[in-house]
């Protein structure tokens, strides 16, 4: 029972990181139609930058600065690549994000190195633990879950209540109409990349003490984040949270059945099964025009 509870908490911990990556996917996908393969790289960069900064800055400041830097980096990518290439097909844009993913990884390898690093625990250390429902948890787990919850709540407010958030959604559902009513769709896309990058970086920081930061971690996160996004239904940011938690939980519990070296297989199997059975997501309604190909 306690064992199951441990699995549960470890599942929702990594799951909330997948959820944030999935939200990041959705933010960019709904604003631009691009599947951003470099999504995992934002997480890696956030962790790496914060670790470097933390060597001479207090951790909270390092995290804040790292998130800010990666946010700007995300905006920069949009400005340098995607804004100029508006005339290119979505296929080309996606290929560019694939190239970016590799170049960013290689850059990280040369700036840092192939060593696995981590941020110090935000509170306490690896030995400290808090008891929750009988399970011994690292306090960092609370940080991860708390951060994810706050991010989701704030995003919900942003999308529902603010003009900017509503504009970002209008942008995705009908760019031409959005442009006609005076929304600057270009700026919206830049903002979407920035927001998505910043969220990824924040996730990279809070998870770093638990699951470490490594230059090659991006693609694995991206694929699980995508699995989460598909579970929730691509284009539906909030449903991605449930998707992320499910991927995390399945991965955590799969360790009790299959060797842990193969736990990624579980996440992938979910993705394929979803594509096969419910391509419109667990909560989405099958609709003739949304996902299924002609």
């Amino acid at each position: 029972m306690v064992q199951a509870l441990q699995y549960f908490f470890s599942g929702i911990t990594v799951g909330s990181v997948y959820a944030i990556v999935a939200i990041g996917f959705n933010i960019i996908y709904s604003a631009t139609g691009v599947l951003n393969f470099a999504q995992g790289e934002f997480v890696m960069l956030g962790g790496m930058v914060a670790i470097t900064l933390a060597s001479f800055l207090p951790v909270p400041v390092a995290v804040a600065v790292a998130v800010a830097i990666v946010t700007l980096f995300g905006c920069g990518l949009e400005l340098v690549f995607f804004r100029r290439l508006r005339s290119h097909s979505i296929l080309h844009m996606i290929i560019i994000t694939i190239g970016l993913s590799i170049v960013i990884q290689e850059l990280a390898l040369h700036v840092w190195d192939e060593k696995v690093r981590s941020l110090p625990y935000f509170t306490g250390n690896e030995a400290s633990s808090v008891k929750l429902l009988g399970a011994a948890l690292s306090p960092q787990v609370i940080w991860v879950l708390g951060t994810a919850a706050i991010v989701v709540a704030l995003l919900q407010l942003f999308y529902k209540r603010t003009l900017y958030g509503r504009a970002m959604r209008a942008c995705s559902s009908n760019p031409e109409a959005a442009m006609l009513v005076g929304i600057n769709t270009g700026n919206m896309r830049t903002a979407a990349f920035g927001l998505s990058a910043g969220l990824g970086a924040l996730a990279g920081c809070v998870i770093s003490p638990i699951s470490m930061t490594h230059y090659e971690m991006g693609p694995g996160l991206a694929i699980k984040g995508f699995a989460a996004a598909v579970l929730g239904g691509l284009g539906n940011p909030m449903a991605a949270v449930v998707g992320g938690l499910m991927v995390g939980l399945i991965e955590a519990f799969s360790v009790s059945v299959i060797p842990s070296a193969f736990k990624d297989v579980a996440a992938f199997a979910i993705l394929l099964a979803m594509l096969f059975l419910r391509p419109h997501g667990l909560f989405g309604r099958p609709s003739g025009v949304s996902v299924r190909e002609v």
Binding site: L35, I90, P219, F226, A261, F262, F268, L271, L272, L275
Partner: peptide
Amino acid sequence: YPSLRLRGHYLAMATLGFGLIIHCI
């Protein structure tokens, strides 16, 4: 089979995941 029936670029994601799994195995 599943990914090519879908709109967009699901094949890219599915094959990326597939590649990671094969690498891992």
